[in-house]
Design a protein around this nucleic acid. Structure first.
Length: 456
RNA sequence: GGAUAGGUGGCAGAGUGGUUAUGCGUGGGACUGCAGAUCCCAUCUAUUAGGGUUCGAAUCCCUACCUAUCCUCCA
């Protein structure tokens, strides 16, 4: 298996630290509002990735942090006239609800930052003891000049970056690039006791404290949005490697690119946010997942109503084929389709840098072949096709379970009446029944005198 | 200004030296009482621009222009 690794900018052969086991850490959300479709892209990609790794036979511990202490949460709380912990608690719940609605089910454990304050304090103490960190009037900072590889992941050269390009320069810091590990309490803020007085953790330190607690100093794969490469992931690397003295924090780094909207990035300041839950409600989780997985995770992806509708059409096409296979009797002479070859082709694309788009192209080609030859399927091929769909779905999560049969007597009787009308040539009546059924959410399809139906 | 990734047909989005990507859309055909679904054929004859290397470039090199993310607690 190969991974598109941010650190080396290459497709590299993957080797887990412990044979057969993978420790995966992905940066989760800061819970101060509903997440948008761009965030949703990240979580769908890694959900599918973890499912794939498990399907490949690895035992995967997928760990994700949740930032539940942050200035953005304070601001939201003051806007809403409530307290920070109420905001955090609410949006942790909303986040988990969103994850469930979009079929994200692979995360082993969600770790909230505030539950690991002890570990955070311990890491900061170690950094100070080892000479990497220092205390000022307002906090504890990491001295980036002490860590020679700082900037290596992002290709940043500290000499070249502009200090204070976006933020005010803090005069108490030794270097403009130093980042905060511990923030001393300001009036009205929540706090924990520490060797540096009352305060709270900086953003970067929570991830290494959590990942060390579960995985130790070094683990296999670290994921996140591409906007976190610098400085967040640089900071994580600097923290953990300074503490451990090891060569890596994570052996491999995978970054999911941004979602853009109307040629512009999705951001709150532009007001072009689409909440994940709204998109999922409008198009369905299968369509959203297909939309996301049909592109390379490391490329920009354009979100639009048109693109979502196209994804929806394709998802229906795949689902339709699946539905037909399920109702296929398999009494034909055999189509000659070799599903073991097709399963392997699908897997092979994913093994090649998690090429979900390539894998879905394989699926589309298989769907066409199935549709073309279904009437010749024998019973073994029906089973093989079902297991093919099951494999695809277990990783991608793009099949609608619109199971029908064993339905209501009412529907069966309506269909029976319609069949009689059709046989009698009374098409006006049969079309009226069809209209009633369709208006009631029942799709039907005539195959000669017989009619199939399902809930649409 | 710097770092990093890119600029492919109506849309989305693959393809790292030599065949049609694929899907959606559009047009036509088969099938159907009609429809839908499905299949077949076609369409769009795409590669940001300009140079260069090569027998041959979307793919390699150079220049220009453009886009996205990031540029250091706070966005």
């Amino acid at each position: 298996m190969k991974i598109k690794d941010t650190l080396t900018h290459n497709l590299v052969e993957f080797k887990p630290i412990h044979s057969g086991r993978i420790n995966l850490f992905v940066c989760g959300p800061t819970v101060y509002n509903y997440i948008h479709v761009g965030n949703g892209r990240l979580f769908v990609v890694f959900d599918s990735f973890a499912r794939f790794l498990r399907e490949e036979g690895y035992e995967v511990f997928y760990l994700q942090n949740i930032t539940d202490i942050d200035d953005k949460i304070f601001r939201k709380a003051s806007e809403d006239g409530t307290s920070w912990d109420v905001v955090a608690k609410k949006f942790v719940g909303e986040f988990l609800a969103d994850m469930k609605s979009v079929g994200v089910e692979s995360v082993t454990f969600y770790a909230k930052a505030t539950a690991y304050i002890e570990q955070i304090i311990e890491q900061i103490s170690t950094l100070i003891r080892k000479g990497y960190a220092y205390e000022t009037n307002d906090g504890v900072y990491y001295d980036v000049t002490k860590f020679k590889d700082y900037g290596k992941l992002s290709g940043q050269d500290l000499e070249m970056t502009q200090a204070g390009a976006r933020v005010e320069v803090n005069e108490d810091k030794r270097n403009a690039a130093d980042f905060v590990l511990w923030k001393k309490m300001k009036p009205g803020e929540p706090y924990w006791d520490s060797p540096w007085g009352k305060g709270r953790p900086g953003w970067h330190i929570e991830d290494t404290a959590i990942s060390e607690a579960f995985f130790g100093a070094e683990y296999d794969i670290h994921g996140g949005g591409s906007d976190l490469i610098f400085p967040h992931h640089e900071a994580e690397i600097a923290q953990m490697r300074a503490i451990s003295g090891k060569k890596h924090l994570s052996r491999y780094w995978m970054h999911v690119s941004m979602l853009i909207m109307d040629k512009e990035k999705m951001s709150k300041s532009l007001g072009n946010i689409v909440r994940l839950r709204d998109a999922v409600e409008k198009y369905g989780p299968e369509t959203f997942r297909f939309f996301v997985l049909n592109s390379s995770f490391d490329s920009l992806l354009s979100y639009s109503d048109e693109a979502m509708k196209a994804a929806g059409e394709t998802v229906s096409r795949i689902g339709e084929s699946y539905r037909k296979v399920r109702s296929c009797r398999g009494s034909g002479p055999g189509s000659g389709l070799d599903f073991s070859v097709r399963r392997e082709a699908f897997r092979e694309k994913l093994r090649n840098g998690f090429d979900t788009h390539g894998a879905l192209t394989e699926v589309m080609s298989t769907v066409t072949e199935i549709n073309r030859t279904l009437d010749r399927f024998n019973s073994g091929e029906v089973k093989d096709a079902l297991s093919y769909f099951s494999l695809v779905n277990s990783i991608m999560g793009i099949l609608k379970e619109n199971l029908s049969p064993s339905g209501s007597r009412l529907i069966e009787n309506l269909l029976k009446a319609r069949k009689e009308a059709r046989l009698a040539g009374n098409y006006q009546f049969s079309d009226t029944i069809r209209k009633i059924l369709e208006d009631s959410g029942v799709s039907i399809q005539d195959n000669g005198p017989e009619t199939e139906w399902w809930y649409s």
